[in-house]
Amino acid sequence: MVGNSSHPAALYKLRKVTRITALVILLLVVVGFFMPTDYRVERSVVINASKTKVYEEMLKGDRLAQWMFIQDGRLSSFDGVLGDGDSVFITYDSTSDQGVLSLITASESVVRFDVRPKPKINLVHNQILLSEVEGGTLVNWIIGGDLSAGLLSPYLALFANDIAGNNFERSLNQLKMLIERQNQ
Rank of each mutant, 00 (worst) to 15 (best):
H125Q: 14
N166A: 14
Y39T: 01
D146Y: 15
M177T: 15
A22D: 01
A164Y: 15
D38N: 12
T91V: 10
F168R: 02
F113H: 09
K16G: 05
V100N: 08
I47Y: 01
E134D: 12
P119D: 05
K51R: 11
G150A: 03
N4Q: 15
L59P: 00
H7G: 05
E169L: 13
A22S: 08
L175H: 01
F33Q: 09
L14A: 08
E132M: 08
N161T: 13
V2M: 12
V115L: 03
D62F: 07
S5P: 07
P117S: 09
E57H: 05
N122M: 10
A164G: 02
I20W: 13
K118R: 13
P117Q: 11
D84G: 00
R40I: 06
T95S: 09
E134T: 11
S96I: 05
L23H: 08
R43C: 04
E56V: 01
L11K: 11
L156N: 05
L82R: 06
L11C: 08
I143Q: 12
K118C: 04
E108I: 01
I179E: 01
L152C: 06
Q98G: 07
L152A: 12
I90K: 00
A149R: 14
S107R: 05
T18G: 09
D146M: 13
V2H: 12
Q71E: 14
S94F: 02
E56C: 01
D62N: 14
Y39L: 04
Q66N: 13
N183L: 12
L101H: 06
Q71H: 15
Q182S: 13
P36M: 07
Q174R: 15
N173F: 14
L103D: 00
V30K: 03
